[in-house]
Amino acid sequence: MVQKRDEGKEVVNFSIAINDRYKPKGSAEYKEVATFINCSYWLSSKVVQWIKKGAFVQVTGRIGMHVYINNEGNPVGSLDFHVDSIKILVFAKKAISAEKRNSKRAAKGRKEKVTEDVSF
Rank of each mutant, 00 (worst) to 15 (best):
G73F: 08
N38F: 05
L89A: 07
I63D: 05
E29A: 10
L79D: 01
G54A: 09
V83F: 07
F56S: 06
K52W: 04
K87I: 13
L79P: 00
N71K: 14
F56I: 11
W42T: 03
E32Q: 13
A98S: 12
I69S: 04
K94I: 05
V47S: 07
M65P: 02
I88M: 04
K52P: 00
Q58S: 11
N38G: 08
T35W: 06
F56A: 12
N74Y: 10
G77P: 01
V83S: 01
Q49N: 15
R62A: 07
V83N: 01
N74M: 12
F36G: 03
V47M: 14
I51V: 15
H82V: 12
S45H: 05
Q58W: 11
A55F: 02
V83Y: 02
V76R: 15
A55Y: 01
M65E: 11
F36L: 11
I69M: 09
A34K: 13
A92L: 08
K93W: 13
G54D: 01
L89M: 09
T35V: 14
G61K: 02
I96C: 06
L79C: 10
I51L: 07
N70C: 02
C39L: 04
F91V: 12
V48T: 10
S45Q: 11
V59Q: 01
H66R: 14
V48S: 15
G61R: 00
D80V: 13
D84Y: 03
D84Q: 11
